[in-house]
Design a protein around this nucleic acid. Structure first.
Length: 428
RNA sequence: GCCCUUGUAGUAUAGCCCGGUCUAGAAUUCGGCCCUGUCACGGCUGAGACGCGGGUUCAAAUCCCGCCGAGGGCGCCA
């Protein structure tokens, strides 16, 4: 079966009148008017109207919406409202039929439940709103890579099957690895730090796993994280990098996704920079002004972050957290050892990223491990690299899926992940 | 782990609170017929549903209980 095409739909134009073309895609709409018919056909690049008349009408037998067709025809001027030109069909080949009933309405005229759409995710991509979200996601990834590579970062891939828990905190998924206990990685933290020894500036964009039974619109068991780690940088340096990545993502997508923004019904606006930087201590004071009393050293609850988010709408950094709230590898401040060189990037109440300056002195690391009731001997593989000339370094991890929800203005992370995994969803 | 909401054709919904009017309604989709410029085409026509199991009642889509499914929130966590 010949499935070649001479043109993608976006390559067709009204100056080609009279020209024979061969293209293909899926049937979006089919309107039969007695002895003539209109169909609209979509490929990844666009939508084209096809007109069928006379003897060609027999070619429509058995054709239905969402089926895949290959059409040969002649370009001609169109009287249609939305098209300058159309293709008059000479031959219509049905390459694959769509079988009804379909589980969702792929046109999106009636918006189906998120549950139904996720169960039929591939078909959901025929819905231009959904497809646009993932086209945007691709642009976001491209933009982040471009920004980081321009700043001399090297993209790495660290293992997702690991032999021991990397940093405490979240519960890990355990698995049997040829009779040994293994885990799915919750973060590339230790590996990316190690890589600063030789590659100096590294980043990874990958899936990580948390076995938390969270039921919210912003948590998934499998999520995509953007991580960087850079030698010879302090936490404020990597905050600047994070900020420029976010700004670049918004700039890039706002300019390159006009169609997608229209489909989604959300205009991407480049945020103001620089982002506000609020210290943990200032945050406590602000909350105190709102009659919310929090002791130094207490973590900020969701409700506290919501209150702060109302005051600092949009992106802002929360910096200088108490050491007691931070993992063992975080570096303290010189002027106050109870405070850390750390930060979270917030969008309102939503935590997008957290990072900081890391300890690079193995002796200090061992002390901190013990303080947090972790056993230094189970970190031997990691600690030994610190004796090989570990440069001072800083980094962060950012939840890509959360950033996507901010970018497209949708508050459920499941909308921006192809096949989300949460405690109740393992399939498809 | 806790709390709230919810389940009606393929899809998305009305009806439920206040039981009988439900032979479950309108839309869209799907099938058939008519239609040569549609553009959410139109007209005629057909098919298609009360998640499962108990209970209350003369009578249950409607009230109660259990199970299963779904959505959201809290907590955990990023």
């Amino acid at each position: 079966m010949d499935i070649s095409r001479t043109h993608l739909i976006e390559e067709l134009n009204s100056s080609m009148e009279g020209q024979d073309v061969l293209f293909g895609g899926w049937v979006v709409d089919l309107r039969k008017l007695g002895k003539m018919a209109f169909l609209t056909v979509r490929d990844v690049t666009g939508l084209c109207q096809v007109i069928v008349k006379g003897d060609s009408m027999t070619l429509l037998e058995g054709l239905n919406r969402q089926s895949v067709v290959r059409i040969s025809g002649k370009v001609q001027a169109s009287k249609a409202k939305d098209f300058d030109f159309e293709v008059s069909a000479i031959e219509i080949q049905i390459l694959a039929k769509a079988e009804y009933p379909l589980p969702i309405d792929p046109i999106g005229r009636l918006e189906s439940d998120i549950d139904n759409r996720l169960n039929s995710r591939a078909l959901d991509m025929r819905n231009q709103k959904t497809a646009s979200i993932f086209k945007l996601r691709s642009q976001v990834l491209a933009s982040i890579r471009e920004t980081l590579i321009n700043k001399k970062f090297i993209e790495i891939n660290t293992p997702k099957i690991i032999g021991s828990a990397s940093e405490g905190g979240a519960d890990l998924f355990g698995l049997d690895y040829f009779g040994k206990q293994a885990y799915l990685a919750q973060s590339p933290q230790l590996y990316k730090e190690q890589m600063t020894i030789g590659l100096e500036r590294v980043f990874e964009i990958s899936s990580f796993y948390r076995a938390e039974k969270s039921h919210t619109g912003r948590h998934l068991s499998e999520f995509t994280s953007v991580d960087i780690e850079a030698a010879m940088m302090d936490y404020t340096d990597v905050m600047d990098i994070l900020e420029s990545i976010v700004i670049d993502v918004f700039k890039y997508t706002s300019e390159n996704s006009k169609t997608e923004q229209q489909e989604i019904g959300h205009e991407i606006k480049v945020p103001n920079s620089p982002f506000e930087r609020v210290t943990y201590t200032q945050a406590l004071e602000e909350l105190s002004g709102l009659d919310i009393k929090i002791e130094f050293g207490e973590d900020l609850q969701d409700s506290h972050l919501r209150s702060l988010g109302e005051k600092h709408s949009g992106f802002f950094f929360l910096t200088d957290w108490p050491m007691s709230l931070k993992p063992f590898y975080i570096h303290e401040k010189d002027d106050d050892p109870t405070l850390s060189r750390s930060f979270d990037l917030q969008y309102g109440y939503l935590e997008l990223s957290s990072g900081g300056r890391r300890l690079h002195d193995p002796e200090q690391l061992k002390v901190r491990l013990k303080e947090q009731d972790l056993d230094p001997s189970s970190f031997e593989e990691h600690l030994k690299t610190f004796g090989w000339g570990m440069p001072p370094h800083s980094g962060w991890g950012m939840g890509l899926d959360r950033l996507m929800t901010v970018l497209v203005g949708i508050d459920n992370v499941r909308e921006v992940v192809l096949y989300p995994r949460d405690p109740d969803r393992l399939k498809p």
